[in-house]
Amino acid sequence: MSSFIRKPVGLIAAALTASIIGSVFSTQSVIASLQSIDVEVPLATRLSMTVGDFAILPMLGGLTAICFVVGFTVAALCRRFLGGDRTAWYVIAGASALISTLLIMKAVLLITPIAGTRTLLGLLSFGLAGAIGGWVFAKISGQPERVQ
């Protein structure tokens, strides 16, 4: 696979992975908030709500892809001028890109755009989703090993 294809494929895979993980984390956070006010949420209802929330994937995936483009570009520049481990740069970029985007959106919209990120734990869970997205991008977009 050429570099021209690996990067967009990697970006799409990274955005999809991070969005699915973020959506799952967000749903669990919302359910935990409901349970904190003594609302019963059986396992079947939890699973149903988790799957139902995948309805936000087109929006979340698009948003994640945009912020990853910015974040991964910065990561590529950092590695070029500062050196270091390529995968680590993309992991850091993925996490910080998602967290930064959510914080910027909150500052602009004056509301928390994703309910599951109202708490610090919820916000950090999106950082973890972004980090995993960065790892996926690094693995897919990386140069293949040369065969001797």
Partner: peptide
């Protein structure tokens, strides 16, 4: 609110799985 509602969050995610409780 927010245990029962016929609405969803602005991003389309569910606020709750319930419309009755």
């Amino acid at each position: 609110w927010p245990v029962i509602t016929y609405g969803r969050d602005y991003n389309g995610a569910q606020v709750t799985p319930y419309t009755e409780y």
